[in-house]
Computed example of a mutant assay.
Amino acid sequence: MKKLQTLKTSLSQKQRILLLVTAAVIVLGILAATVFRENVSSALRWMTYSQSDDTFAHNAQSNSLFLGLENNLLICTSTQIQLYSPTGTPRLKETVSMDSPAMNASGQYAVVYDVGGQQLKVIAGEKISYQMDLPAEESILCATINEKGWLAVTTKVSGYKGVVTVYNASYEAVLSIRLSSRYVSDAVVTPDCRGVYLISPGQAEGAFENTLLYYTFSSQETPEKEVSLGSNVVLSIRSSSDCWILGDKNLFVLDSSGTVTASYDYEGQYLKMGSLYGSDFATLLLSRSASGSAGTLVTVGSNGKPYGRLELDGQAVALAAQSSEVAVLTTGDIITAKRNLESYYVSPNQKGYRNMAMYKDGSLALVSSASVSLFFQDGEKVDNKEESK
Rank of each mutant, 00 (worst) to 15 (best):
A173K: 15
S287L: 03
Q80K: 14
A370Y: 04
K338I: 00
S275Q: 07
K305I: 13
A365N: 03
E38S: 15
P223S: 05
S10N: 13
S388G: 09
T48M: 15
N210P: 09
I199P: 02
M132K: 11
R182P: 00
L74Q: 11
I17L: 13
V260I: 10
S241M: 07
D383F: 11
Y345S: 01
L83P: 01
G278Y: 02
I75R: 09
D53R: 13
A124T: 07
D361G: 08
D99W: 06
A282C: 07
Q350V: 00
S388H: 06
V300P: 06
C142E: 04
Q269S: 15
R238G: 04
G379E: 02
S185C: 07
S287V: 05
V122K: 12
T95Q: 11
M132Q: 09
K381T: 01
V328Q: 07
P101S: 12
V260E: 09
P201W: 04
T259E: 08
G117H: 14
V189K: 10
Y84L: 04
Y307I: 09
K161N: 12
V227S: 01
L212C: 09
I237T: 04
Q118H: 12
N349A: 05
V382R: 15
G278F: 07
G332T: 01
E137I: 03
L341K: 15
E137A: 12
E205K: 01
S10A: 00
S97R: 14
S256Y: 14
S185D: 09
K249E: 11
V260N: 01
A365S: 06
N349Q: 03
C243I: 08
G258K: 10
A124M: 09
N71F: 11
V367D: 08
V328E: 01
V189L: 05
I17T: 04
L246M: 10
P101L: 11
S176M: 01
D248V: 04
E221K: 03
S176K: 12
A102H: 13
A136S: 02
S170E: 05
G274C: 01
G195D: 06
N210T: 04
A102I: 03
L229I: 03
A173T: 07
D242Q: 15
E221F: 08
V328F: 05
S106W: 12
V328T: 02
K121V: 13
S236W: 02
S200Q: 02
A204T: 05
G116H: 10
N303H: 11
K14G: 12
M1N: 13
E226R: 10
A105Q: 15
A204K: 12
F217A: 03
T155K: 15
V298D: 11
Q80P: 04
G206A: 06
A57Q: 14
S231K: 07
P223Q: 08
S139F: 00
T144Q: 05
K121M: 07
E137C: 03
S218G: 09
A169H: 02
A337M: 12
G116P: 10
A57L: 08
P101F: 05
Q80F: 02
S52W: 15
L312R: 14
V233P: 00
S228V: 04
Y160G: 03
V153K: 13
T165F: 02
R45Q: 13
P223D: 09
A32R: 02
E386N: 13
E221Q: 10
S289I: 00
Q15I: 01
Y214L: 07
K14H: 14
V163F: 10
N250E: 11
A294G: 08
